[in-house]
Lab assay of single mutants.
Amino acid sequence: MEQATVKWFNAEKGFGFIERENGDDVFVHFSAIQGDGFKSLDEGQAVTFDVEEGQRGPQAANVQKA
């Protein structure tokens, strides 16, 4: 698992990007966020996640709020 920071997340559209420590951004979809209830992330929030290869490149999976 990697630890990184949420760059931005649009709760209405259900997706955003996580900024990795190496500077690369990773796409995150609300369905990858672990937990119950409304799944959203806040800008600047610390998260841990795995990286999977998606249809359009790397994307976050198993996202957990740190």
Score class of each variant (00 low, 15 high):
63 V>I: 06
49 F>W: 00
18 I>P: 00
1 M>S: 14
38 F>W: 14
20 R>I: 08
49 F>M: 09
55 Q>S: 14
36 D>T: 13
5 T>D: 05
15 F>V: 05
28 V>N: 02
66 A>M: 15
57 G>C: 06
28 V>H: 02
65 K>S: 10
9 F>H: 02
55 Q>R: 15
45 Q>H: 06
37 G>V: 05
28 V>D: 03
30 F>Q: 07
35 G>Q: 09
11 A>V: 12
29 H>P: 05
12 E>R: 12
31 S>F: 06
26 V>E: 00
23 G>N: 08
11 A>N: 11
64 Q>L: 10
29 H>F: 08
43 E>L: 12
51 V>H: 05
22 N>I: 10
40 S>C: 14
48 T>K: 09
34 Q>V: 14
23 G>C: 06
22 N>K: 11
47 V>L: 00
6 V>N: 02
44 G>L: 02
10 N>E: 04
41 L>K: 01
41 L>Y: 01
3 Q>V: 14
58 P>G: 04
31 S>I: 05
27 F>I: 03
20 R>A: 05
6 V>M: 01
23 G>E: 08
23 G>H: 08
53 E>G: 07
61 A>S: 10
32 A>V: 07
44 G>R: 05
18 I>L: 15
33 I>N: 00
3 Q>W: 15
3 Q>G: 08
65 K>A: 11
23 G>I: 05
10 N>R: 04
53 E>Q: 14
62 N>I: 04
42 D>K: 15
37 G>T: 05
15 F>T: 02
33 I>M: 04
55 Q>N: 12
52 E>C: 14
2 E>D: 07
24 D>L: 12
27 F>E: 01
42 D>N: 14
35 G>N: 07
7 K>C: 06
48 T>L: 12
43 E>G: 13
30 F>G: 04
45 Q>C: 09
49 F>E: 01
21 E>S: 12
4 A>T: 03
41 L>P: 03
29 H>A: 04
40 S>G: 08
33 I>E: 01
9 F>V: 03
30 F>I: 07
2 E>G: 11
24 D>V: 13
53 E>H: 12
36 D>S: 13
51 V>D: 02
11 A>L: 09
3 Q>T: 14
20 R>H: 06
66 A>Q: 12
1 M>P: 13
31 S>W: 05
23 G>P: 03
25 D>V: 13
33 I>D: 01
53 E>P: 10
32 A>W: 03
34 Q>A: 11
27 F>R: 02
58 P>R: 08
6 V>L: 04
12 E>H: 12
5 T>V: 13
44 G>C: 08
60 A>Y: 01
59 Q>V: 10
2 E>P: 08
45 Q>A: 09
44 G>P: 00
1 M>T: 13
4 A>Q: 04
7 K>S: 05
63 V>F: 00
20 R>K: 07
58 P>M: 09
29 H>W: 04
50 D>H: 15
24 D>H: 12
41 L>F: 05
41 L>W: 03
58 P>Q: 09
1 M>C: 14
59 Q>N: 05
40 S>I: 11
56 R>V: 06
63 V>G: 00
31 S>T: 13
51 V>M: 11
13 K>W: 11
64 Q>V: 13
57 G>S: 06
11 A>S: 12
56 R>H: 12
60 A>P: 02
4 A>L: 02
26 V>T: 04
32 A>G: 07
19 E>R: 15
46 A>S: 13
57 G>H: 03
39 K>W: 06
27 F>M: 01
59 Q>H: 09
62 N>K: 08
9 F>D: 04
63 V>L: 04
2 E>A: 10
52 E>Q: 12
50 D>I: 15
62 N>M: 06
27 F>H: 00
41 L>D: 03
17 F>T: 01
13 K>S: 07
39 K>Y: 05
59 Q>M: 09
30 F>P: 02
47 V>H: 01
36 D>C: 14
11 A>R: 13
43 E>T: 15
9 F>Q: 03
54 G>M: 06
36 D>E: 13
45 Q>S: 08
28 V>R: 00
24 D>P: 15
19 E>M: 15
53 E>R: 09
5 T>H: 13
21 E>T: 12
40 S>T: 14
60 A>E: 02
38 F>E: 08
15 F>R: 00
33 I>Y: 03
20 R>V: 09
64 Q>F: 10
5 T>G: 02
54 G>N: 06
21 E>G: 10
64 Q>K: 12
35 G>I: 09
14 G>C: 06
17 F>Y: 06
42 D>H: 15
25 D>Y: 12
59 Q>A: 07
19 E>L: 14
39 K>N: 07
17 F>A: 00
43 E>Y: 13
65 K>R: 09
53 E>M: 15
52 E>D: 06
35 G>C: 12
6 V>W: 00
41 L>V: 04
21 E>Y: 11
9 F>E: 03
22 N>L: 09
49 F>Q: 00
27 F>Y: 06
63 V>D: 04
30 F>N: 04
53 E>L: 14
58 P>K: 10
26 V>N: 00
27 F>T: 02
34 Q>N: 10
21 E>P: 13
32 A>D: 07
8 W>C: 09
10 N>C: 11
57 G>N: 03
44 G>Y: 04
6 V>E: 02
54 G>A: 06
24 D>Y: 09
1 M>E: 09
36 D>W: 10
33 I>Q: 02
62 N>G: 04
17 F>D: 02
43 E>P: 15
56 R>I: 07
29 H>V: 03
46 A>W: 15
53 E>I: 15
62 N>H: 09
29 H>C: 08
61 A>L: 08
29 H>S: 01
4 A>Y: 05
45 Q>G: 06
59 Q>I: 09
29 H>L: 05
5 T>A: 07
24 D>G: 12
39 K>T: 06
5 T>Q: 08
28 V>T: 03
14 G>S: 01
26 V>G: 03
9 F>M: 02
38 F>H: 09
16 G>Q: 01
3 Q>A: 11
12 E>K: 14
44 G>N: 07
10 N>A: 06
47 V>R: 00
17 F>E: 02
3 Q>H: 14
60 A>F: 04
24 D>M: 12
43 E>C: 13
65 K>H: 10
66 A>G: 11
6 V>Q: 01
37 G>A: 07
18 I>V: 05
48 T>E: 08
51 V>K: 03
19 E>Q: 15
54 G>Q: 05
61 A>T: 12
30 F>M: 06
6 V>S: 01
14 G>E: 03
46 A>K: 13
42 D>R: 15
10 N>Y: 05
31 S>K: 06
21 E>W: 12
8 W>L: 03
37 G>M: 05
18 I>T: 02
5 T>W: 15
34 Q>G: 08
48 T>V: 11
49 F>V: 04
51 V>T: 08
20 R>E: 05
10 N>S: 12
22 N>H: 12
21 E>D: 11
26 V>W: 04
31 S>L: 08
65 K>W: 09
35 G>L: 08
30 F>H: 09
26 V>R: 00
12 E>W: 11
1 M>K: 15
63 V>A: 03
41 L>A: 01
64 Q>C: 10
53 E>T: 12
65 K>I: 14
46 A>T: 13
22 N>T: 10
